[in-house]
């Protein structure tokens, strides 16, 4: 439950300033054992993608906790964002966010998405996801272990 605490503290803490920050309107009570996410790669090195893919494979199988990935944000409960936000992906990220129905959850997956990691002040980089959107939940690690991903998603899907 360490991770749960960590993201709860993040949820409570005031977020750093960024461009437009729409309210996510997310409540934990709205999700009950079913969480559908749209994965958005905004400039990842694909390490996180491999780990996310592993989290949904037969070994770790996040699906058994009611978690699924979807192709369209119209069906999603939230976004699973990986990578540091590059300039070119700011707009698509906001569009994807807009296209997701309310209430929604934004999950920053991996250190790049949380803090920018070693790409932070790089060329063509906007910054971490929190510069663009309100981040509700973070999954730490570079890349995060599939167990961590599964654990976090499970904690969101079934908060009891």
């Amino acid at each position: 439950m360490k991770i749960l605490d960590s993201f709860l503290s993040l949820f409570k803490a005031p977020l750093s300033k960024g461009i437009s920050r729409p309210s996510n309107g997310y409540h934990f009570s709205t999700i009950n054992k079913s969480l559908t996410l749209r994965h958005v790669d905004v400039g990842s090195c694909n390490g996180c993608e491999i780990e996310i893919a592993s989290a949904f494979n037969p070994i770790y199988d996040a699906g058994r906790f009611g978690v699924a990935l979807t192709a369209s944000p119209r069906h999603a409960d939230g976004l699973l964002v990986t990578g540091v936000v590059t300039q070119n992906m700011v707009d698509p990220l906001i569009k994807t966010f807009d296209a997701t129905p309310n209430p929604k959850i934004v999950i920053a997956c991996g250190d790049c998405a949380i803090s920018g990691n070693l790409f932070k002040n790089g060329y063509g980089v906007k910054g971490p996801v929190s510069e663009v959107l309100n981040v509700d939940v973070s999954i730490m690690g570079c890349p995060p272990h599939p167990i961590d991903i599964v654990d976090t998603l499970r904690a969101i899907a079934d908060p009891k």
Partner: peptide, 11 residues
């Protein structure tokens, strides 16, 4: 809420 129709994030 009025938003653009979903065009896979493109313009």
């Amino acid at each position: 809420r009025i938003v653009d129709s979903w065009g896979c994030g493109s313009n």
